[in-house]
Amino acid sequence: AEAKYGDVPEEDREEIRAQAAAADNIGLFFGEDIFVAVGAILLMKGFFDQNGIKADPISMALWGLPTAIFVFIVHSIRLRLFDRKLDRKLGKTGSKDVEK
């Protein structure tokens, strides 16, 4: 943001940090759901085995794939809208002209 707009007001800087943290959390959470060798799938496999339910880790990961794709699309839209918001706020005048 600083490379694109120059000085960024603290309020916007905090919102950028929040969006970056959200992207990281979403990526890690749903990435775990579709990667077989990570604890979430193995934990579910163990739980199902203890309760006599046949479950295949590959199938569980594949069932998580549509949700992960949907979340990726939704969050991509959110980030794009946030980027447009920053462009409207900081892009035209630049942060040097924005009163603090």
Rank of each mutant, 00 (worst) to 15 (best):
A1I: 15
A1L: 13
E2W: 06
E2Q: 12
K4Q: 13
K4S: 14
Y5P: 01
Y5I: 05
D7H: 14
V8N: 05
E10S: 08
E10L: 07
D12F: 04
I16V: 09
I16L: 13
A18G: 14
Q19V: 07
Q19L: 11
A20K: 10
A21T: 14
A21H: 09
A21N: 12
A21C: 09
N25K: 10
I26D: 00
I26L: 10
G27C: 04
G27R: 01
L28E: 08
F30G: 00
F30S: 00
F30I: 03
E32N: 07
E32I: 03
E32A: 07
D33I: 01
I34G: 02
I34F: 01
F35A: 09
V36P: 01
A37V: 06
V38Y: 14
V38L: 13
A40Y: 06
I41H: 00
I41Q: 00
L42G: 10
L43P: 02
L43K: 14
K45A: 02
G46K: 06
G46C: 08
G46N: 09
F47C: 03
F48I: 08
D49Q: 08
Q50V: 07
N51L: 09
N51F: 06
G52F: 06
G52I: 12
K54C: 07
D56G: 04
D56M: 13
S59N: 10
S59E: 11
M60D: 00
L62F: 12
W63Q: 14
G64Y: 00
T67H: 12
T67G: 12
I69H: 09
V74P: 02
H75A: 14
R80D: 08
L81R: 13
L81T: 05
F82D: 02
F82M: 06
R88F: 15
R88V: 10
R88L: 12
G91D: 06
T93D: 15
K96G: 05
K96Y: 14
K96H: 15
K96F: 06
D97P: 01
D97T: 05
V98P: 00
V98Y: 02
E99N: 13
K100M: 14
